[in-house]
């Protein structure tokens, strides 16, 4: 018997809609909580073994190096430590590092917001290629990143003639260091903002527009507050990388003491001169920065979850 029942019984029962929408509601809820029960766990001995191996590995490869930075820095006591930091070349390196990081953060925040707006709020062909290109600097070796600027602006570079004619110095000077840092930190802010803004969609912006808000109003009153934590997160990571960048900056800096040496380069010079305490003292500042970054990042992650909901 052919039952054409389903095709023909076109009754739309209201209860069916109610059930369907309720089903959707529960589905949209939080992920099911992890239930570590006897079914889904290993015998105690295995558990202890796995935890022990994990902790030993992390201790040996990650915790110890960090601790040793501070240990080596304070090996000769407070006085030697402070003396290494207030030395003029060290101060110059700190100043230069802060300047370069400041410029990179401002540039990347601007670029990140602009790029995320274009990518997340509009549809256009070639979008995924654009996202890939923005991420590209992540996969380029820092040394290659530095080298390409030498090839552009160095004494043998493509623009060498123009730069000489106008007496502009980029390589072995501040502009080169800034450019190399911009290259390696390029994706940091944008890649935090793009997925979040894509996920948030355009409904709130449309609502704001329907209520009469102008483009800038929409951006500053609706979009920006919605991504502020992700933006801060991106700034933190961008800043940490900008202050700590070594390979790319090393290629373009020229290592001129007191002039074009950033903190990481200063650390290298001191280390190669066997001034270990001084080297680690400057390194400890960057390690501290890394720790502060990590703590702030951990605190921010809770906020980020809120933003994404």
């Amino acid at each position: 018997m052919t039952l054409a029942a389903d095709a023909l019984r076109t009754t739309t029962h209201p209860a069916a809609h109610a059930l369907a929408s309720e089903g959707l509601n529960t589905h949209a809820g939080a992920l099911p909580a992890r239930r570590p029960g006897p079914t889904n766990s290993e015998p105690k001995a295995v558990r202890i073994a796995i935890i022990t191996v994990a902790l030993l590995f992390l201790g040996l490869f990650i915790a110890l190096p960090l601790i040793s930075v501070f240990y080596e820095a304070f090996k000769r006591g407070w006085l030697a430590y402070v003396a290494a930091l207030v030395e003029p070349d060290a101060l110059a390196a700190i100043r230069l590092t802060l300047l370069v990081a400041g410029i990179s953060v401002v540039a990347n925040v601007t670029f990140g917001l602009v790029a995320a707006w274009a990518i997340a709020k509009f549809e256009f062909p070639g979008k995924s290629l654009l996202i890939t290109l923005i991420d590209l600097p992540f996969s380029v070796s820092p040394v290659v990143a530095g080298l390409v600027y030498v090839l552009l602006f160095g004494s043998q570079g493509l623009f060498a003639a123009y730069l000489q004619a106008w007496d502009i110095k980029i390589i072995f000077a501040l502009p080169g260091i800034v450019l190399a840092t911009l290259f390696v930190t390029f994706p940091f802010v944008a890649r935090e903002l793009i997925p979040l803004m894509q996920e948030q969609g355009t409904a709130e912006e449309e609502a704001a527009a329907s209520l009469g808000a102008s483009g800038l109003s929409i951006f500053f009153r609706v979009t920006l507050p919605n991504v502020k934590w992700a933006l801060l997160y991106g700034v933190l990571l961008c800043n940490a990388r900008a202050m700590g960048e070594f390979g790319a900056v090393s290629v373009v800096s020229g290592h001129i003491r007191g002039l074009t040496n950033t903190m990481p380069l200063h650390i290298e010079i001191l280390y190669n001169e066997y001034q270990f305490v001084a080297s680690f003292a400057v390194a400890s500042l960057l390690a501290l920065l890394a720790l502060v970054t990590l703590i702030a990042k951990t605190l921010l992650e809770a906020r980020l979850v809120e933003d994404a909901q």
Partner: peptide, 26 residues
């Protein structure tokens, strides 16, 4: 036109009061 969105599109970082006031504030 007043538009009520399917998923409401409320501004999540604003209080109820500020949400309603938005159209007047801009």
């Amino acid at each position: 036109v007043g538009f009520v969105f399917q998923h409401y599109a409320l501004f999540r970082h604003m209080s109820v009061f500020e949400n309603v006031a938005f159209g007047l504030r801009v």
